[in-house]
């Protein structure tokens, strides 16, 4: 039992460290990829090829004055960014990040998942749902009208797309018959043909669209869309408090990438000659790239169009998809 607790703590610390480092690195990758799509170079001056830009940004964020506006509700203002960052990482607890492996030179088998609970997917979705409180409270606490508009947008966008995410995942869950992500992985163990994306293409597209909305990416980039609401909920934030929103957002992008890879694209099963660990990293990297690609290519839509898309298009489609899946399974 002691060993289990220690192992869990080590895993949690590792995930926290690695994913927040990846989130930082993700900003660099994002700037580089956007730059290449837009015919420019991106960060080039700090370190070779601009790689140390993350360090420079980190120093800037950490040493910036911790500023709280006089009219703000201090406690809520300080807690809100922590909610975003914390829920983003807690959600990762139920996600198997890599296949099982044996530590070199020992016979300890490591399962790279903090907790294989039997309600894995539900837990991840719930945690990302709780993440809504971060931007919501941040916007309301800062006594700024743009912040209020931003938090109102947060509430409608996250709450609505929670529904689509949940419903779109329901059909694959019905097929697999389990909520554990490990079971999803084993369900697709027999090669590319068994990937759920082939049997549930509609669910995959719905999940991807709502994933974009939940991680606040273009074209659903409404919460802190600079052209419209300055920075939305983050208008009054600066320094590391703002940085925590940022890390939370990038961690969420990675989580969505992992979810999509495990649920629809065969997870960490070996792919032809590619070992499973590399396969899932490639899949997640693809989803990360997809989010940046879409950001470079498309404008974003209006909040009322976002709602129209959610309630009049995506939700009926999701319900229909569940119905069809159910009928096919019964027959």
């Amino acid at each position: 039992m002691d060993g289990y607790i220690i192992a869990t703590i080590i895993k949690a610390a590792l995930i926290l460290g690695v994913i927040s480092a990846l989130a930082g690195f993700g900003t660099f990758i994002e700037r580089k990829i956007l730059a290449f799509i837009q015919r420019r170079l991106g960060p080039m001056h700090v370190g070779p090829y601009g790689v140390l830009q993350i360090a420079a940004d980190g120093i800037k964020l950490f040493t910036k004055e911790d500023f709280i506006p006089s009219g703000a509700n201090k406690i809520v203002f300080m807690v809100a960014p922590i909610i975003t960052a914390a829920t983003a990482f807690i959600a990762l607890a139920a996600v198997p990040l890599l296949p099982e492996f044996t530590l070199p030179f020992t016979d300890i088998v490591v399962r790279p998942i903090v907790s294989d609970m039997n309600i894995g997917i539900l837990f991840v979705i719930a945690m990302m749902g709780v993440g809504l409180y971060g931007p919501l409270l941040a916007g309301m606490a800062q006594e700024n009208k743009w912040g209020i508009i931003g938090s109102a947008r947060t509430a409608i966008q996250f709450l609505s797309y929670e529904v689509v995410t949940g419903l779109s995942l329901l059909a694959p869950i019905m097929m697999v018959g389990s909520l554990s992500l490990i079971d999803f992985n084993t369900y697709q163990a027999s090669g590319v043909g068994s990937w759920i994306i082939w049997s549930q293409p509609v669910a995959f597209v719905l999940f991807l669209i709502s994933g974009f909305a939940e991680t606040n990416r273009t074209p659903f980039d409404l919460l802190e869309n600079e052209a419209e609401v300055i920075s939305g909920y983050a208008t009054e934030y600066s320094g590391m408090r703002w940085g925590m929103f940022f890390i939370g957002e990038y961690a969420n992008m990675i989580t969505i990438g992992f979810l999509a890879a495990i649920i629809f694209l065969g997870g960490f099963n070996p792919l032809w000659i590619i070992p499973g660990g590399l396969a899932i990293i490639l899949k997640v990297a693809f989803f990360f790239f997809l989010m940046l690609w879409v950001r470079a290519a498309w404008p974003h839509i209006r909040p009322d169009q976002l709602m129209w898309l959610c309630w009049k298009v995506l939700m009926p489609l999701a319900v229909l998809n569940i119905l069809v899946t159910g009928i096919v399974m019964m027959v």
């Binding site: 956007l34 837009q38 273009t218 052209a227 950001r295 470079a296 498309w298 974003h300």
Partner: peptide, 16 residues
């Protein structure tokens, strides 16, 4: 106009 509507790339394309 494209930047305001959110199409960031057009902004940089047209500026060249």
């Amino acid at each position: 106009h494209a930047l305001d509507v959110g199409a960031m790339s057009i902004f940089l394309y047209a500026f060249r």
